[in-house]
Design a protein around this nucleic acid. Structure first.
Lengths: 324, 324
DNA sequence: CTGAAAGCGCTTACAG
DNA sequence: CTGAAAGCGCTTACAG
């Protein structure tokens, strides 16, 4: 049978109120009484029921996290940062993905209404913005990670996408390249627009291929440019996957990387160091972003303020062989 | 203010008992009464508090999952399989990692005692077996995923490691290779022993290098063999990361892959299709394993039996250029 | 410094 | 078919 606060109280010869007080170090309790209660707690191996505590206190000491997919290359890093921070604060992390349309979104909002968690971390899945906005307006604390749509309504953690694009441009320019080709990610993402602008402010070019973050997008951009006879001596891809595709297509076409064409990616996912040649890329601090977002949310739940402006964590250019 | 069952009862002109009955479709309720209650529920947007339900019912409709790391290359697939299954059943998933020693293990067992979840899925972190065994003996339903230590005490989902090793061996043998080199993973893992035995039963060899699942392990095994003048015409690595290391070292040493040396990995992580050349590898069905484990646990929580023997999901040889 | 009692929002015998 | 009441295991005014 489960040990309850009543068992502890009886065994220690005090009231449940007193046990609760020493449990939460709240209110004055006589030193020796407290010590006795603590002994009983230890000897009985008593742990308060999280459900009962949550019900009585009106909060669950759990935070929720909603992500579009768990298999994206950088999601593990974000998650690890979040889990580490949340666990260290004694909170639990409830994980949700909304990848099966309306039905799963509904199930998710049900969990929210059920008060299964006190606050929500979001890597925004497509088509969930309305839902999340509604929940936020109803009072659910929310922090966005890698805000791809730029929603000033929410506290968020972002990285320096514009400066990241600019750093790639400066690097290629310094290496003496003159005709860069850009393979973008999905255009309506804020991060994509920023990476593009940041790059072109430093290194203007009209060779822009619309991609979608897939390997194929990188491959096709290169294949088409070569087929069209468009000269280019470098590629800036908006993520590492399409950079890897570009590298593959270049080598298949007999162009040497980096001698003939230098390639720079974005993200620095594990794959980046394993392509041939390894990718020069703009590193996103995914784990730190997860930690920062979780920290913000926990701080807010603890009664603190939330930053009015997005918290910005810097990208970092990682130089490898694809663009030395 | 939050909508409660009392609000619904008042609005519908019935007792809380009746509302509870239509909520859980339990016991007989008059058709028209039920319809009226349902309308009120919808119009008020009522959702039962998960904490209260859990307290009253003695279960949380949440399952826990404990993993050693969220950044391992195949962990995302496992997680996705688990989350999809758990969500579809209307359960929540609470995520834990025990990667900071005793302190985090303690915090984790605290959550268990707090009844934060009804059952546990485990990808076993090092040095947690005792803890998990103790929890299991105390009555916590547990299912192990990719049981690396072979603990017959627990229900588990595994893959055909022995047959996977054998399939790699048959493939190399059929390709006319005669001197295979093996780079193992950490030796005390059950899966490593099985892959090794499976391979050597089909294709005996004494060229075995103890590795640790890192890229460096693959690189060093190859470098040492070359330095020692040991002839070999193929490599079977116990995971893709060390296979990638082997490929890299071979090419750096001027050996052609697969012409001079064929390389076969294990896992089929995303990286496998991006090495140069892409890796032939023994695919582990990680997502399916996650789904199966979650399904077993949910079935058990639902009152069903657990399979007495481990559930075994088949590996599959994926042939790419590194060993055609 | 301490305790009796009410309350958090549900479910579940029990009685009708 | 329906409801009053007790109970799940805590916390928190309130009173002393």
């Amino acid at each position: 049978m489960r040990v309850t606060i009543a068992d502890v109280a009886r065994e220690a010869g005090v009231s449940k109120t007193t046990v609760s007080r020493v449990l939460n170090t709240k209110g004055e309790v006589d030193g020796s009484t407290a010590a006795r209660v603590r002994e009983v707690i230890a000897s009985l191996g008593y742990v308060p029921s999280s459900g009962a505590v949550g019900l009585a206190r009106g909060s669950s000491r759990t935070i929720g996290m909603l992500v579009p997919s768990l298999t994206w290359p950088w999601m593990g890093e974000v998650l690890q940062g979040v889990v580490d921070t949340v666990e260290a604060a004694g909170y639990g992390l409830l994980l949700f993905t909304c990848n099966r349309g309306a039905e799963s979104v509904e199930r998710f909002t049900g969990q929210v209404s059920a008060r299964a968690f006190d606050g929500l971390l979001v890597v925004e899945p497509e088509n969930t913005l309305e839902t999340i906005t509604a929940l936020h307006r109803k009072g659910l604390p929310v922090v966005l990670i890698d805000d791809r749509g730029h929603h000033p309504e929410f506290p968020s953690v972002v990285t320096t996408n514009r400066e990241g694009g600019a750093s790639a441009a400066r690097h290629l320019l310094a290496a003496g390249r003159t005709r860069p080709l850009i393979v973008t990610g999905i255009r309506h993402f804020g991060c994509v627009r920023e990476r593009l602008e940041g790059f072109r402010e430093v290194f203007p070019t009209d060779l822009v291929h619309d991609g979608d973050f897939t390997e194929r997008a990188g491959r096709e951009a290169v294949e088409r440019s070569i087929a069209a006879g468009t000269p280019f001596d470098s590629v800036f891809a908006h993520n590492d996957l399409s950079a890897a595709g570009a590298v593959r297509a270049l080598r298949a076409a007999g162009r040497r990387v980096p001698e003939d064409v230098a390639v720079v990616g974005f993200d620095d996912i594990p794959l980046a160091r394993h392509t041939e040649p390894p990718l020069t890329t703009v590193r996103q601090p995914m784990r730190a972003m997860g930690e920062a977002a979780a920290g913000m949310l926990l701080g807010h739940l603890g009664g603190g303020p939330v930053p009015a402006a997005p918290v910005v964590l810097p990208t970092e250019l990682v130089v490898r062989e694809s663009a030395p």
